[in-house]
Computed example of a mutant assay.
Amino acid sequence: MYTAAKERYTTMEYNRCGDSGLMLPKVSLGLWHNFGDTANFENMRKLCFTAFDNGITQFDLANNYGPQPGSAEKNFGRILKEDLGAYRDELIITTKAGYDMWEGPYGNWGSRKYLIASLDQSLKRMGLEYVDIFYHHRMDPDTPLEETMGALASIVQSGKAIYIGLSNYDGETLKKAAAILKELHCPFVINQNRYSIFDRSVEENGLKEATGELHKGLITFSPLAQGQLTDRYLNGIPEDSRIRTDGRFLKESSLDEHRLNQIRKLNDLAMQRGEKLADMALGWLLHHKEVTSVLIGASKTQQILDNVKAISCAPFTDEELKLIDEISKN
């Protein structure tokens, strides 16, 4: 049986999630990749143990994480049952619904029927009575916002989730949704969005600004831009790269000479700071006051150990921040 490290809370730092009572680790583990049916189960266990032993208390899932859809929740549920379940009250377990999950008109988007049914399925796969945060995974242009937010409020009232989150929303829609949830007395505490040095969409669509104004948390996924903000592509694309073996999320065409040159310049800056590029990229996110936590993905335990170091990242000077913008936006 797994026994958690006694010193697990000695190095990790925790941020308050907006103005709520919830504290989240600055680094959280996402199960988007490497927890599906095609991955090695023993490696999944080691990843979870390494994360928790180093103070990572938040494990982020979604109904469709796999492959196959649902398999990441199923595998994580097995880890909970066999190992981590004894520490349930120390964990923040999150899941989502909003993308295509099953056949027919009721297995997608943001209807009340879909969201409630999806969470019921997720809880069954994980062997849980509730999740700590349940997210609507993406904006639904056709379902009334009142219906989607009402479903989220009902889910909390039913005891199947403690808090509510929104993912992949823009600033304008976030404000409308937050107003509805406030009227419903629903504990909406966090937004989850893609954000990195190379992806500034939350700065451009008003989400980051609205998050600050509303005093909500912000957790960022793809903080390393699918590995671009690491030393993996400094000398081109390795033959064993996921780009060549998978290619679903990062296309080879994205790593043209211009992007590779940007990566090299950012790496030079990181070296001047005495850091690895990944550490600097994660630290850059965490220096933004709106960012509560960064979601990392990992296929090896050493990646988790390396990424946790980002909480000790050196402060950024104004000159360094300006240079990062110049490199990444040009």
Score class of each variant (00 low, 15 high):
residue 158 S to W: 06
residue 110 G to H: 03
residue 64 N to P: 01
residue 58 Q to G: 02
residue 34 N to I: 04
residue 303 Q to Y: 11
residue 19 D to V: 10
residue 21 G to M: 06
residue 151 A to Y: 08
residue 110 G to K: 04
residue 7 E to I: 07
residue 47 L to E: 10
residue 85 G to R: 07
residue 152 L to C: 02
residue 166 L to C: 10
residue 17 C to K: 01
residue 189 V to C: 11
residue 10 T to G: 03
residue 23 M to H: 11
residue 129 E to I: 02
residue 294 V to L: 04
residue 270 A to L: 02
residue 86 A to G: 11
residue 196 S to C: 09
residue 148 T to G: 01
residue 270 A to N: 03
residue 156 V to S: 06
residue 105 P to M: 09
residue 160 K to E: 04
residue 174 L to M: 08
residue 324 I to T: 09
residue 173 T to Q: 15
residue 225 A to R: 07
residue 53 D to T: 03
residue 3 T to A: 11
residue 252 E to A: 05
residue 86 A to Q: 15
residue 130 Y to D: 04
residue 291 V to E: 08
residue 191 N to C: 15
residue 182 K to Q: 15
residue 240 D to Y: 08
residue 215 H to A: 13
residue 313 C to A: 14
residue 94 T to V: 05
residue 100 D to Q: 13
residue 197 I to C: 01
residue 25 P to D: 01
residue 163 Y to G: 05
residue 59 F to G: 09
residue 146 E to T: 05
residue 313 C to Q: 09
residue 23 M to Y: 14
residue 184 L to V: 04
residue 133 I to W: 01
residue 76 F to I: 03
residue 102 W to L: 03
residue 312 S to Y: 13
residue 125 R to Q: 09
residue 124 K to H: 12
residue 75 N to P: 04
residue 157 Q to R: 15
residue 240 D to E: 13
residue 123 L to Q: 00
residue 259 R to I: 13
residue 121 Q to A: 14
residue 80 L to N: 00
residue 3 T to I: 15
residue 61 L to A: 02
residue 63 N to S: 11
residue 294 V to F: 04
residue 101 M to L: 15
residue 131 V to D: 00
residue 198 F to K: 08
